[in-house]
Write a protein that binds this DNA or RNA. Structure first.
Length: 423
RNA sequence: GCUGGGAUAGCGAAGUGGUCAAACGCAUUAGACUGUAAAUCUAACGGCUCACGCCUUCGUAGGUUCGAAUCCUACUCCCAGCA
């Protein structure tokens, strides 16, 4: 993988870049739709391309459980299997250690008696689907309860089998409510596991390279997927700094910021992003995991973030909500400029009774398939009430388009500005 | 006409003497959702009140009882079977 910062504005850390993977190029800042089980829910690959998707996500944990990475490898890797045929980033399953095992982290609330603490904690652990040890994560499959153990190495192997272009290492993502010493432990483990992940990936490719003829060398290097570090440390600046510096020293292909948007305040989240903006190397891609709303994305790009992924556009669509950009302001250039800084999006819940007879499309200025085909808000509201799957699809297409259009706008606006950085 | 069964909140449907303004589902009205156990989840849902609480409801009208959606009587309507 190669990353090129094409232009960067001098006032902020806003930048545009290009990621080159074995499966194709990606323009950054980029929004990556989430296709956990190998599909961006309800959307066909050609539709994704048409909407403007450049790379999609898959999830190690889910694909390992079903249908299994071996089968996917036999069928040509994930991007062939699901016919996306473009760049793929796979998440490690580290987040599942958080989302499936939340209770593992949860301390009893403060008004409990101290002597019942351990009891409650243990009780939580029993119910949890996840157990974290020094060596890895033990999962109980949510599908059939069977036990599985993920080590950093195993997770790399699975992602290699999936044919991922960007591999995420196994990490520990604590919830926002976690106490500092637990967050510190999580960050420590994440660093430790990252070292093992890198070593394992390097060794794997060393082996492949030595087995191959020299003329294949460069090709193999090209095929080698990127490995990102995932910076943890919650909302604690010292932990974040420590974790980031350790990971930067490991010279990875890119850096992800994990453990944000997990319940902390927005202000705290951006404080951490800003802090890491100063620590992470400029020449490497930065990926803010799991973020976020359109407004979050706008703000984070100003803090030097290049990559985003989030379930919101697709999940919200399934939950009957459309993201609609507030009308572009008219007026003086100055006013427009000010307005631009606060570009906002509205969430339209089509289940709300006020949309029942709304004859307009969601957004007359929107060029998405749903709006362009002039489906009325009333009709969308009707579909959603009827639980007709077309409703989900039309909203998903609209929301994804809205996100990709936002990314295009951000890139275009950076491109227009004076630049100080030309590689 | 006879025999049997039934009538519960917008709909469906529990409940057969007190803990019943009445389970549950649907519908309705809102809310939540940020590396997807999520086409999911939460709440409200007779009236009045911010709330404590008060008031009116279980086909209709009477009755028994300290107390009735629940027991008795009559009536109205519905369903099934038989004439």
């Amino acid at each position: 993988m190669k990353f090129l910062v094409k232009k960067q504005t001098n006032k902020s850390s806003l930048r545009i870049g290009e990621l080159t993977t074995a499966n194709g190029k990606i323009q950054t800042p980029v929004f990556m739709p989430v296709g956990t089980v190998g599909a961006v829910k309800s959307v066909a690959p050609w539709e994704l391309h048409d909407l403007g998707a450049e790379i999609i996500l898959g999830n190690t944990y889910h694909l390992y459980l079903r249908p299994g990475e071996k089968l996917i490898a036999e069928l040509g890797g994930l991007s062939e299997y699901n016919r996306w045929q473009g760049p793929v980033l796979t998440d490690s399953g580290g987040f599942q250690a958080f989302s499936l095992g939340k209770r593992n982290f949860q301390f009893p609330i403060s008004n409990f008696q101290t002597n019942s603490k351990s009891e409650i904690r243990n009780e939580g652990k029993e119910n949890s689907l996840v157990k974290i040890t020094d060596d890895g994560v033990e999962f109980k499959s949510y599908l059939d309860g069977s036990k599985h153990f993920f080590t950093p190495e195993k997770v790399i192997d699975i992602q290699l089998a999936l044919g991922s272009n960007i591999i995420m290492p196994l990490d520990v993502c604590p919830p926002a409510s976690e106490l500092k010493f637990e967050v510190e432990k999580a960050a420590g483990l994440s660093i430790k596991w990252l070292k093992r992940s890198k070593k394992h990936l390097d060794r794997k490719f060393q082996e492949t390279r030595s087995k191959s003829q020299t003329n294949l060398k460069s090709q193999i290097i090209n095929l080698k997927p990127a490995l990102f570090g995932i910076v943890q440390g919650g909302i604690f600046p010292d932990l974040r700094k420590y974790c980031a510096e350790k990971m930067v020293a490991m010279d990875l292909d890119g850096y992800a910021i994990g453990g944000l948007a997990v319940g902390e305040k927005k202000k705290e989240m951006f404080k951490i992003v800003a802090l890491l903006n100063d620590i992470l190397p400029v020449e490497k891609p930065r990926y803010l995991m799991g973020v976020g709303t359109p407004e979050d994305i706008i703000q984070a790009t100003k803090l030097g973030i290049d990559m985003f992924d989030c379930v919101l556009p697709t999940r919200m669509a399934r939950h009957n909500v459309a993201y609609v950009k507030l009308k572009t302001p008219t007026g003086s250039a100055k006013a427009r400029k000010n307005e631009k800084l606060i570009t906002q999006y509205r969430e339209i819940n089509l289940l709300n009774s006020k949309y029942r007879e709304d004859k307009n499309s969601l957004d007359e200025n929107c060029q998405c398939p749903t709006c362009k085909n002039q489906f009325s808000t009333s009709y969308l509201s009707h579909l959603v009430r009827e639980k007709e799957i077309l409703g989900v699809r039309l909203l998903t297409l609209h929301n994804l388009w809205t996100y990709f259009a936002l990314m295009r706008e951000i890139r275009a606006s950076i491109d227009k500005r004076l630049t100080i950085r030309e590689n």
